[in-house]
Design a protein around this nucleic acid. Structure first.
Lengths: 151, 151
DNA sequence: ATATTACATTTGTATATACAATTGTTGTAT
DNA sequence: ATACAACAATTGTATATACAAATGTAATAT
C-alpha cells in the first residue's frame, strides 16, 4: 500500500486536515479494491452486493427503490440501473406495487440468497483481514473518530 | 450526516471490522461531495483538480501520463481521458515527448495556474471545515490509525 | 371533473473507474 | 536487418455516480 509520502513526492508538509482527507480517500480505495476482487468471480460489484444484503435484511419483504436508496451506504443516483443489472443476473425480482402503482417492489430471489450465503464467510474473512493491522481497541478508536468527524 | 444506525435499520450489531469499513466509505463520500460542491463552479471534478495540483507541483516541468498516474491519490485507469477534459477546458497542454515518442508530456497552462490560485484558499477553507469536529490531536490519531490500517 | 401539484421511477448526458484489447514506438536478440 | 518483446498511450466496453429532464401515477384544490 502506497504511503502519502510516496505519492506526493514533490510536496512540502501538508496540513493535517488535508492529510486526513487523503488518507480517507486511500483507505476507501483500499477497501473497495479488496472487496471487488472477492466479488468479481460472483459477477457482483460492491454496490450490487450491498443492495443484495439490504434486500436479504428484509426477510423476503419487498422494498421499493426509495427505501433501498435510503439504506445504501453509497447514496446511489441510479438505483434503477443498478437493479436492472441484478435483474439480468437473476438475483432480484421486480413488481409494480398494487397499492401505489408509482412504486416498484423489489425482492431478492432464491438464487440471490444462495449467492449471498456463499459469499458471507468470504466477506467476513476479507473484512477481518483488511482490518487486521489494528487491534480491537484501535478499531473502536478509529470508528469513534470517523463518527465524530462527520457528526 | 447519516449515522450507521440510521442506514442499517434492520441490522443486528455489526462486527467492528465491518463498521469501520462502512464508516470509511461514508467519510469518503462526505469529503468527496463537499469538495465537489466547491469545485463545481470552476468546472472541475475532484480528480481533475488533484491532477492540476500535481502538475503545478512540478513547477512548469512536464509530466507524462504514467508519472501522473503514479502520483494520483485515486489510481486512475484512464488518465488519457481525464487529461482530454482538462485540455478542452484549456487547463493543460499536451506534447509528444521528443526523446521518446511513446511518451506524452503534459503541462499546466497559465489559465490552469490562475484557477488553482483562486481555488487554493477556498479548498484550504473547506478542508478545515470538514475536519473541524476533531481536535489536532484527534486528527493525528485518525491519521495514524488510517496509516497503520493499510500498512 | 379538471387542473395543478407532488410523488416514484425512468431516461439522458457526463465523469470516474475497471479491465481488456489495440496502436504505435523503442529496445533487444539473433 | 528483421523479428520479437517491452513500453506508453489510446480506445472500447461496462459499472457507478451526479444531475437534470421526462414519464407516469396519485393526491389536492377549486
Amino acid at each position: 500500500m502506497k504511503e502519502l509520502e510516496d505519492i506526493l513526492k514533490t510536496s512540502k508538509t501538508l496540513p493535517l486536515s488535508r492529510k486526513t482527507i487523503i488518507n480517507v480517500f486511500l483507505s476507501n480505495t483500499y477497501f473497495k479494491d479488496e472487496m471487488l476482487s472477492v466479488l468479481k468471480p460472483f459477477d457482483l460489484s460492491v454496490e450490487q452486493f450491498n443492495v443484495l444484503r439490504i434486500l436479504r435484511g428484509q426477510n423476503e419483504k419487498p422494498l421499493n427503490l426509495q427505501d433501498i436508496q435510503d439504506r445504501m451506504v453509497n447514496k446511489m443516483s441510479n438505483t434503477t440501473r443498478l437493479i436492472d443489472k441484478l435483474l439480468l443476473k437473476g438475483f432480484v425480482e421486480r413488481n409494480t406495487c398494487a397499492k401505489n402503482r408509482r412504486k416498484i417492489e423489489i425482492f431478492i430471489t432464491q438464487d440471490g440468497l444462495k449467492t449471498l450465503s456463499v459469499l458471507d464467510p468470504i466477506i467476513d474473512d476479507i473484512e477481518q483481514q483488511m482490518t487486521s493491522n489494528l487491534s480491537q481497541t484501535e478499531l473502536e478508536q478509529l470508528n469513534n473518530l470517523l463518527t465524530k468527524l462527520k457528526a
